[in-house]
């Protein structure tokens, strides 16, 4: 089983299943440098992730067509099919697997282009493995949530199908406006949104809402979330966002 998962190297490793919503995260690592790939895989495996490795763009594409992964760690400089091209083809085939790009190149405009092309995150080499793992977890959590219609931030869970908030398992009672606003926030955990942006997302259904009213709703939500392990953070000039109180998840 190990040999099958490794593909290119045989090293026995202790497997500790990484916990993420009850299952191990399955990662496809696309990297052509064998040293980096080896050590990175070992580190991630240690943390309980399942890592599969391809060192060629075309092979990776085929792999992704056949199997499903929780996330892809993609290096840009690959033989036969470059990372950017692979990403574009992936997205063109409606593959929504979260992709985290790693590269030694520091080009900002390249970074923006890749984010526009459908990359979910961007990390420059060299990076700390913890950073990579944390970001992968965030990506996977978000995508899982989106897939199932379940959004989570710390103890707060929103079930889109049931249109219901639960805090530590208990249903949270909210007014329609509070519900609407909290839903916007929970779908964008960690991304600051200004009052105007929030208003824009509420107004189609609620036409006589004013900017000041947003503040009032935020205030009321805060009261309901006090001590719950999740909070609404305000940063002046950036906006409002949800955050688990034990740090960004």
């Amino acid at each position: 089983m190990l040999a099958h998962q490794w593909g290119h190297d045989r090293l026995s490793q202790e497997i500790r299943p990484g916990v993420l919503l009850g299952c191990s995260m399955r990662i496809l690592l696309v990297e052509d440098d064998p040293d980096l790939a080896t050590w990175l895989s070992r580190s991630l495996l240690r943390r309980g992730l399942i890592v599969e490795w391809e060192d060629d763009g075309k092979l990776a594409e085929r792999r992704l067509k056949g199997d499903s992964f929780d996330a892809v760690v993609l290096d840009l400089g690959l033989p036969s099919l470059g990372g950017a091209a692979l990403l574009k083809r992936l997205r063109a085939n409606d593959d929504t697997t979260p992709v985290l790009i790693v590269t030694a190149r520091n080009d900002f405009s390249e970074r923006i282009d890749l984010l526009h092309a459908g990359a979910d995150d961007f990390l420059s080499k060299p990076f700390a493995v913890e950073e990579l793992e944390a970001r992968l977890a965030a990506l996977v959590r978000r995508s899982h949530g989106r897939a199932r219609g379940i959004y989570q931030c710390g103890p707060l869970i929103f079930d889109q199908n049931a249109q219901r908030f639960t805090l530590d398992g208990e249903v949270l009672a909210l007014s329609p406006r509070e519900h609407a606003l909290l839903r916007v926030l929970v779908q964008r955990v960690g991304e600051p949104m200004s009052k105007q942006q929030l208003l824009d997302r509420l107004v189609p259904t609620d036409s006589d809402l004013q900017l000041e009213a947003v503040e009032v709703i935020i205030h009321r939500l805060r009261r309901k979330l006090v001590g719950a392990g999740v909070q609404i953070v305000t940063l002046r000039g950036l906006g409002y966002f949800l955050e688990a109180t034990d740090g960004p998840g």
């Binding site: 960690g190 953070v233 940063l235 002046r236 000039g237 950036l238 955050e243 740090g247 960004p248």
Partner: peptide, 8 residues
């Protein structure tokens, strides 16, 4: 945010 810093 990982260090609890506020950017404004």
């Amino acid at each position: 945010r990982r260090r609890g810093l506020k950017i404004e």
